[in-house]
Design a protein around this nucleic acid. Structure first.
Lengths: 310, 310
DNA sequence: CCATGATCATACCTTTTAGGTATAAAATTC
DNA sequence: GAATTTTATACCTAAAAGGTATGATCATGG
C-alpha cells in the first residue's frame, strides 16, 4: 500500500467514476483501475461496488475512505509542521506525555517551567509511554511523563505516583448501583472499550495485560482513539472502560465509576529522561516538581511520592 | 512522499545507521540513502544530521519521526479494520458525530436506538461536520450530528439546538476573575488554541471565521488534535480556547469559563441525513429524539428546538 | 427489447522509478 | 596519520507505473 493508491482511491470515491477521477489525477483510466484493484487485492476485500453507476463504496470502502482521508490530511499536516520546525530558530523543549497525565499536574508543571524559562519554546507532545523511551534516546523529546514501566540503560526513570484505576459504567448498569470497590473478576464476560488504539503498546495494552494475568476474559474488546470516545460509548451503554482515577470526573450525568480493589490495578506516573541530562535542566524540573509537591496539589499524593529514588 | 519513504526513514532513525537500516529493510545502502535524500528534498529541510556517528535526528527529524510512526501505525490499523468490515455480515448503521456532540445527547440516543433495534450493529464515527455531508452522499455514514451548516440538495438538515460558546481561561488569568459574559473583542491579541486541527474545515474554522468576521485578531493561533490537549494547554497558561457550553465542565481546578455574549457566538447541533432515507429509519430516529425531548434532557433546551422545520 | 453510449477491465507496450554494484568522500577509531 | 566504517555519487539493471488500444459491462433512450 502506498499513499499514491490512497490518493487514487479517494479521487475515485469522490467522483464515483474512474474516468473522471483519472482526469483529475492526470493519469489514464486503465492504470487507475489497476492501482485500485491492486489495493483491493492487498486488502483482500472490495472497496468499490462496480455493478452499478454511479459507483458505490462497499461497507469496507466507506470505512477506508474516511480513514484514508484522515491519513492524507495528517500527512499534509506533518509535512507543513516538519518544514516549520526545520526552518525555526528558537530553542525547543519537548515534553512527551500520555494524555491522562494532562488531567493531572503536567499543565501546572508547564506553567512553572514557562515562568522559570520565558524564552524556551515548550511543546507538549501527546505520546504513549513506549514511545517516550525511544523518543528520549533519539532526542525527539527532552522529558517524558508516562504510565508504563520500561527499563533502559540510557534512560532514568522516576515513579512520581501510583494511581488507582476505576471502571466506568453507564448509569443504570446492574454493577453501577454499588459504589463499593469492584474486583476485576467481575469484568469477566463484560464488553470492554479500551484506548488509545494507537500507537501500541499503550495504556490499552496495560489494561489487557492486567486482565489476562488474572485469567479474566472480557466479552468483547473495542479499541478507540481517545478517552472521550470511550466514555461516549460507555455512556451509550455499549461497553465498560477502565480509566485512571484522575480521569473519572467526566460525564457525571450518564457515567459512573467504581474503584478497582485489586492490588495490581494501579497505573504509575513516571518521569523519564536521558541519563546524560540528569545534571542539566532536569534537576531544575525536579525542583519545580518538589515545589509543586510542597504546594500539595491534588494529583501528587504524599503516600506515593518516590521522587529521589534511584 | 510515499509510505515506503516513511518506513525507510523510521528504520534509519531507529538504527541511527544507514547500513544497518538497509539490512533490516532488505535493500542496499545506496538506494536507502537516495530515498531519504529525496524525502528531505521534497520537505525542504534536513531530517538527519550526518555530521557525526551515530546519526542524530534534527529538530524537524525528531518531529517527523513521531508523526511518521503514528501514521504507519494508523495505516496498519486501517488495513486490519477494513478487512474486518469487509468480511463481516451484520447490518451496520454508522452515526457520524462531531466529538463535542458526544458530551450531549448522542450517547442517550444511541442507547435508545440499541433498545429499539437490538440486532443493528451501531457504530459511532467521530467525524467533522464537513465530512458528514460527503460521507452521507457516499453512504459511509447513515446519519450525522454536526456543528457546521451546509447546503446540499441531497442532504436534509435539521437544527436540533443552538449552543452558546464559552472562552476557557487558565485560573488566574486577569480576564478569568470575572464571571460576567465576555465580548469577543476582548480576545483581540490573546493567544488562542483551536481544535480539531484535522480534517478541515472544522469547528476550529468556525471559531476563526467568527473572530475574523468581527475584525478580531488573536495574538497567535495554535492547532491541536482534540479538546483535551487544548484544555491542557489552557491549564498550562499558554493559550485561551473557545469551546461549546456542553464541554465546559472539564478541569474545574485549573480552567474556568466565561460565556461569550456576542449574538453570533453559538454553535448549532445539526442532524443530517440523505433525503432518500427520510421515510425510513430516520423517521424513527426523529421519534426517538422527540421522546428524548419529552424527557427534557439538559442538552435539549426547549427554546432552540426546531425539529420539524423544513 | 435492442442499439448506442459511457465506463471499467484487460492486453501489450513504453517510460519512469526503485534498487543494485562499484567506488569516492567523509567520519571515527586506534 | 592510517585503517576502518559509513554515507554519497555514478552508472546500470530490473521492476513498476503509466499509456494506448480494445474488449466487457452497465445504463439509457427510442
Amino acid at each position: 500500500m502506498e499513499l499514491r493508491q490512497l490518493r487514487y482511491f479517494l479521487a475515485v470515491a469522490r467522483e464515483r467514476n474512474f474516468s473522471r477521477a483519472a482526469e483529475i489525477l492526470h493519469i489514464a483510466q486503465p492504470p487507475l483501475s489497476r492501482q485500485i484493484q491492486q489495493l483491493e487485492d492487498e486488502l483482500g476485500v472490495l472497496l468499490i461496488d462496480r455493478s452499478n453507476r454511479p459507483l458505490d463504496l462497499t461497507e469496507a470502502g466507506r470505512f477506508f475512505y474516511e480513514q484514508a482521508g484522515q491519513i492524507i490530511a495528517r500527512i499534509e499536516n506533518m509535512r507543513e509542521q516538519t518544514r516549520k520546525i526545520g526552518l525555526s530558530r528558537r530553542e525547543r523543549y519537548v515534553i512527551g506525555c500520555v494524555g491522562s497525565t494532562l488531567y493531572g499536574g503536567i499543565p501546572d508543571l508547564v506553567r512553572r517551567m514557562r515562568e522559570r524559562w520565558p524564552d524556551l519554546d515548550i511543546e507538549i507532545r501527546e505520546m504513549m509511554s513506549t514511545e517516550q523511551v525511544t523518543a528520549l534516546k533519539e532526542r525527539r523529546i527532552d522529558v517524558g511523563f508516562g504510565r508504563v514501566r520500561f527499563n533502559d540503560r540510557e534512560i532514568e526513570r522516576l515513579t512520581l505516583r501510583e494511581e488507582r484505576l476505576v471502571v466506568a459504567f453507564p448509569k443504570g448498569h446492574p454493577k453501577s448501583l454499588s459504589t463499593e470497590p469492584i474486583g476485576l473478576a467481575e469484568l469477566d464476560g463484560e464488553p470492554l472499550v479500551i484506548y488509545p488504539s494507537a500507537p501500541r503498546p499503550s495504556f490499552a495494552d496495560e489494561v489487557l495485560n492486567m486482565l489476562s494475568e488474572q485469567g479474566i476474559s472480557p466479552g468483547s474488546v473495542e479499541e478507540v482513539r481517545e478517552i472521550q470516545t470511550a466514555l461516549g460509548i460507555v455512556a451509550a451503554g455499549m461497553s465498560l472502560c477502565i480509566i485512571p482515577t484522575a480521569s473519572q470526573r467526566q460525564r457525571p450525568d450518564d457515567v459512573c465509576y467504581r474503584i478497582i480493589k485489586d492490588e495490581n490495578a494501579t497505573s504509575p506516573i513516571i518521569m523519564s529522561f536521558r541519563r546524560d541530562d540528569a545534571k542539566g535542566r532536569i534537576e531544575e524540573i525536579k525542583q519545580l516538581i518538589r515545589e509543586m509537591y510542597a504546594d500539595n496539589p491534588p494529583w501528587l499524593q504524599l503516600s506515593n511520592v518516590q521522587l529521589d529514588r534511584a
